[in-house]
Write a protein that binds this DNA or RNA. Structure first.
Lengths: 221, 221
DNA sequence: ATAAATTTTTAGATAACTCTAAAAATTTAT
DNA sequence: ATAAATTTTTAGAGTTATCTAAAAATTTAT
């Protein structure tokens, strides 16, 4: 069975909203995420329910079935593998790949994605540090990942991901060379606004509380 | 301006049919090529005409405008560049790539195709030997390309393309290792059925008239 | 030149996805 | 507990691309 691009986008949206909120996702929330109207969402959700991709109770919100989850995870796998390709092989910056990957993720061919995966040496994380589910739908796990804001002063670690993936934020990080894989050390926190000093590339920079709350760090043991 | 996948497929079909027939393309012909109904073609062709992509006169057939040609050529460029990628980088056989390239060709990003082109070292021909138009729409030319059936006995050359791209034919060639780049020499023709003996890979094989009529050869000077 | 065959277009319908406006249900606030 | 605010659904309609069946135009054959 194959699904339309729109159906796949709904499933992906429901998957990510459910993972954020841990409860049945409301029509309104989906509408906002997909930039469409709640009434359109109701229609589509009924359709997905008829195909046994979601569980839907009027006025009660939506959750994915096993079948719906599998499709959503496959699309996420496609998306992230394509992002790796765009960055590693074609030299895109990490803030430039999202839109193109949104298109590429819907290409219908399991074989293609498996071959891409192999071509890229089975990457476990995408350029934003998000885990790439394997063929069976299992997401790689990161051990001691915490937010930069949770590190103590003097602690060290490696940037392994971002919580916020907006282009504004990614461009900011690019400019400050706060990219995936970089080693950092927290040297100081300013009580006034909770901004922090960081050593990166052997230089000290100050970053705001907001930035600290959106950078995912793997602690140096 | 951006166009739907269907619109792009119509333009591509009209382009290739016009290049084959050298006259305005009929509704019926397009319908056959796209496996749809003539009435659907009429509808779509009107729509394309309103967008100034084709010139259309009732009962007289269709030709592409400059604008329509540009789009068709871009899609062909995309298709052929993706085919090179699939074969060269992912190890697909040349008879396995068409369907996937039909999907990939519609990805909307000029930048992406330019980067792919560069990543693949600006290939001039696709895995079937068909020329890849450059960014400006110019197709590479092949000098002394002839059909294998036009070679004289004792003449030598290199396989540079196929006229027929059906999977049946490509699989046949794959099996006989008659692939792009191979050097061949005609040693004999059997008057009875016009089949010919060929030296390839230092071995002699006999191939039918039909095969000779569909292999494009660049003569050894 | 006219009838028959073929091609092409028109008319009317359907399916997928979207929208606006109004009605119904639920939640929140007093 | 009930009124007000909010959320969600329904009803009806528009768009894109498709189809079938019938009508119109063109081509072919005699």
């Amino acid at each position: 069975m194959s699904y339309t691009r729109t159906e796949e986008n709904y499933l992906k949206a429901i998957f990510s909203l459910y993972n954020k909120e841990n409860k049945a996702v409301s029509t309104n929330t989906i509408a906002k995420k997909l930039k469409t109207k709640p009434s359109s969402v109701t229609d589509m959700v009924k359709k997905l329910s008829n195909k046994d991709l979601v569980k839907y109770e009027k006025y009660k919100g939506v959750t994915l079935t096993k079948k719906g989850t599998d499709i959503a995870v496959t699309i996420i796998r496609n998306h992230r593998i394509w992002e790796v390709f765009l960055v590693e092989k074609l030299g895109y910056k990490w803030d430039e790949v999202h839109e193109i990957a949104e298109q590429l993720e819907h290409i219908k061919s399991d074989e293609l994605i498996d071959r891409m995966d192999e071509f890229l040496d089975n990457p476990k994380f995408d350029p934003h540090g998000d885990p790439i589910p394997d063929k069976t739908g299992k997401f790689a796990e990161r051990k001691k990942a915490v937010l930069l804001s949770e590190l103590e002063i003097k602690e060290e670690g490696i940037i392994v991901g971002v919580k916020n993936t907006s282009n504004d934020f990614l461009q900011y990080l690019e400019e400050k060379t706060l990219t995936i894989g970089k080693e950092i050390k927290v040297t100081k926190e300013f009580e006034f606004d909770k901004s922090r000093n960081l050593v990166v590339n052997e230089r000290v920079i100050t970053i705001s509380k907001e930035v600290c709350n959106n950078l995912i760090i793997e602690k140096r043991p």
